[in-house]
């Protein structure tokens, strides 16, 4: 009887989202009076593994294998399913991100488990097991009942608080049974920017839209992001035009983010764009058009030209420090 959490690492380190997952799982495990077990796959050192205990993991299972330093869907699925069986998992939890979306559905079929993906809160009811998730890209919220004995959840980022507890976690190595059939996909090479703040991790996001008019006009946005320690983003037309890279596109078909503060600069606020950012805690919009729909979704608005307002704002921020 347990809640099992799959914890991914990035270059051997856990991310904030991992601790959100553990906090969520340990609260759920308490409600059900069962244990919270965290599973880490890939090379992670003992101190990092132990840190999961700070947020309520009772046991940490560690799978180290050089073939598993990149995501191999079938092999990972097999490991998670083996651990779920060994630990008698009633609930298996993933992050609602690249790896969670890749693994949760496969694991669910193997365990014949129903899945609620992009869950935003602890269950409203344990029997029937009912959770909330966003639908229609942020335009509505659904209450989903999972009917199967084993349940799989993927947790939406920044939707639960991280709660520290006394660390009582034990660490155990786990040896999965893997065969060649699990490794039919191979990663040939990896290109990765290191040291860059990832958009999905960022608490502060500075985003520009078509209203920026030209790819050469991004200087003040980059400066604001640098001054505040934030990440850069853009709307779809901007990435489609090639003004900014595709991985900065936020919105319905791009990345869905939920930072503490989202600066929407020269963004009119099309409904598809809002779908990707409406979960932000604070939205600050600057736009020349006082009737732009973005002001209906923003918390704070300035009517004005970004090229003029932003340098003045950056100056004022520097002076306030």
């Amino acid at each position: 009887m347990s809640v099992l959490i799959y914890i991914e690492n990035r270059d051997g380190k856990f991310k904030k989202l991992s601790y959100e997952l553990v906090s969520y799982a340990s609260q759920l495990a308490k409600q059900l009076n069962i244990t919270a077990v965290a599973l880490s796959i890939g090379n992670v050192d003992e101190a990092e593994l132990k840190s999961l205990g700070n947020y309520g993991a009772d046991k940490i299972l560690d799978v180290q294998d050089d073939r598993l330093n990149v995501l191999v869907n079938k092999a990972y699925t097999s490991i998670i399913a083996q651990v779920a069986e060994k630990e008698g998992a009633d609930i298996v939890i993933f992050a609602h991100n690249f790896s969670g979306k890749a693994l949760a559905p496969r694991v669910a079929v193997r365990l014949k488990a129903g899945v609620a993906s992009g869950v935003t809160a602890l269950p409203g009811s344990l029997d029937p097991f009912t959770v909330q998730k966003g639908v229609f890209t942020g335009k509505a919220i659904a209450n989903v009942v999972i009917k199967s004995p084993v349940k799989v959840l993927t947790l939406f980022q920044n939707s639960v608080e991280i709660i520290e507890t006394e660390n009582k976690a034990s660490i155990e190595a786990f040896q999965p049974v893997l065969n060649d059939d699990d490794f039919k996909t191979k990663v040939l090479d990896v290109t990765k920017v290191t040291g860059k703040l990832l958009l999905t991790d960022a608490e502060i996001v500075v985003s520009g839209g078509r209203g920026m008019k030209d790819p050469g006009n991004w200087g003040p946005l980059e400066e604001l992001a640098a001054v505040l320690g934030g990440a850069m983003a853009c709307s779809r037309p901007v990435s489609d035009e090639g003004w900014r890279p595709h991985d900065e596109h936020v919105g319905q078909t791009g990345k869905i983010i939920a930072p503490n503060v989202y600066f929407a600069l020269g963004i009119s606020g099309a409904i598809q764009h809002l779908g990707g950012v409406s979960s932000s805690k604070h939205i600050i919009a600057i736009n020349t058009d006082k009737d732009a729909p973005i002001f209906e979704s923003a918390d704070y608005g300035v009517v004005g030209d970004v090229q003029k307002v932003l340098p003045a704002l950056i100056q004022a921020i520097k002076e306030a420090r």
Binding site: G114, K139, N143, V144, V145, D299, G301, V302
Partner: peptide, 25 residues
């Protein structure tokens, strides 16, 4: 089917945007 969408809600209404003068940053 192992899951069922039993009910829906619309997100809580957003409070009005507070407008700030560009001259008063």
């Amino acid at each position: 089917a192992l899951t069922e969408f039993v009910s829906y809600e619309l997100p809580p209404a957003k409070s009005a945007c507070k407008m700030i003068d560009a001259e008063n940053l």
